[in-house]
């Protein structure tokens, strides 16, 4: 046998390893953060242009719509559901409200427009929730169905054409600046004020999930529906709430998309669902429900946005970019796989 001290130190090492392991399991966003740092350091080494204030601004700006979608998706996932209709809801609200406001009330202030969009999204979300509950069908199939219905409605009854005459209040809202920086290459970088909408949405989502009875019910239903129901949680209420909340955020996301873009294209947004889902899962949420955190989701969104916006900087040819993103998601997913087995 080897000596006592040596054995002792090993068991201490193992114990501390286990402690770190347990801590990481309790704090999955740390993995996401590590991945963000790794990607940043790697890209920064390949392309020093990465280290610019303007880059942080661009990432923040590009994260907003994905972030709002991600928060909505997180809440649904936490309750054990899944939603594929949020982009269709956002596209409908975006195009319908923009064209209607332009036609009949171009003076309408942006806060009112945002409220209308959020309410519209909420109503469709409630519909989703009721369908999921009463049809007792998998949320996946129900929301695939409703997304087609919503999109079909948009393209058939509202319009298919690119709309460029955006009402002034919507446009001005997107131009409102928080911070402006002159870069050394002579161009200007702007941090738009609407990034605060994502911050606000994150705070509200965190509050609902962690500080309200509804939040407790969401995690309970997501963990095990039948036990939660026996404990007195109302599954219907929870399901309707989470889909309504996702619709609420989707409506706002749609209007922010128009506001930032200064055009309303009915074909925009739809098709980005998988990016959002990847972001939320890479943020540590369990795809099977009952877990996930707001901080993790935001970090996941930052990670996905980062990876999607550094490929040109890294000098990866256009034909390879999708391939590289795919490989990255698989690798990142593998990292999370090791976490669960740890």
């Amino acid at each position: 046998m080897s000596d006592f001290v040596w054995t002792n130190s090993t068991s201490e090492d193992q114990a501390s390893m286990k402690r770190i392991g347990r801590w990481l399991i309790r704090n999955p966003p740390v993995f996401t953060l590590i991945l963000i740092v790794l990607v940043s350091v790697t890209i920064g080494a390949i392309a020093p242009e990465f280290w610019q204030v303007s880059n942080i601004f661009d990432m923040a700006r590009a994260s907003v719509v994905t972030g709002l979608f991600g928060l909505g998706f997180l809440v649904i996932l936490a309750a054990g559901g899944i939603d594929l209709s949020f982009t269709a809801i956002a596209a409908l609200m975006m195009y319908w409200i923009t064209t209607a406001v332009a036609a009949s009330a171009p003076w309408m202030p942006m806060p009112v427009i945002l409220v209308i969009a959020a309410l519209g999204g909420t109503i469709i979300g409630i519909g989703n929730g009721l369908l999921v509950h009463y049809l007792r069908a998998p949320a996946l199939i129900v929301t695939i169905g409703t997304s087609y219905v919503i999109r079909g409605f948009l393209l058939t009854f509202i319009g298919t054409e690119l709309f460029v005459n955006i009402p002034l209040p919507i446009e001005e809202f997107g131009k409102f600046e928080l911070w402006r920086v002159q870069t050394d290459t002579g161009s200007i970088a702007i941090l738009p004020a609407y990034v605060l909408m994502l911050v606000a949405a994150a705070v509200v989502t965190w509050w609902i999930l962690n500080r309200t009875l509804m939040g407790r019910a969401i995690f309970a239903i997501g963990g095990n529906t039948s036990i939660a129901e026996r404990l007195g949680y109302d599954a219907r209420k929870v399901q309707v709430f989470v889909f309504a909340f996702s619709g609420f955020l989707a409506g706002i996301a749609g209007m922010l998309h128009v506001s930032a873009n200064r055009i309303a294209n009915p074909f925009d947004l739809v098709g980005t669902e998988l990016t959002v889902i990847a972001a939320v899962v890479l943020g540590g949420a369990r795809i099977t429900g009952g877990g996930g955190s707001v901080l993790g989701t935001i970090l996941g969104v930052v990670l996905i946005t980062l990876v999607n916006n550094v490929l040109i900087l890294a000098g990866i040819p256009s034909t390879w970019q999708t391939f590289v993103v795919g490989c990255f998601i698989v690798l990142a997913g593998a990292v999370f796989g090791t976490r669960k087995s740890a």
Partner: peptide, 23 residues
């Protein structure tokens, strides 16, 4: 960096232009 894909989305064209300007 030829043939950047915009996916027919003005916002993607915008993001990629910003990145191209940095690079």
């Amino acid at each position: 960096s030829p043939k950047n894909e915009s996916f027919n989305d003005a916002n993607t064209a915008y993001n990629k232009t910003k990145e191209l300007l940095k690079k």
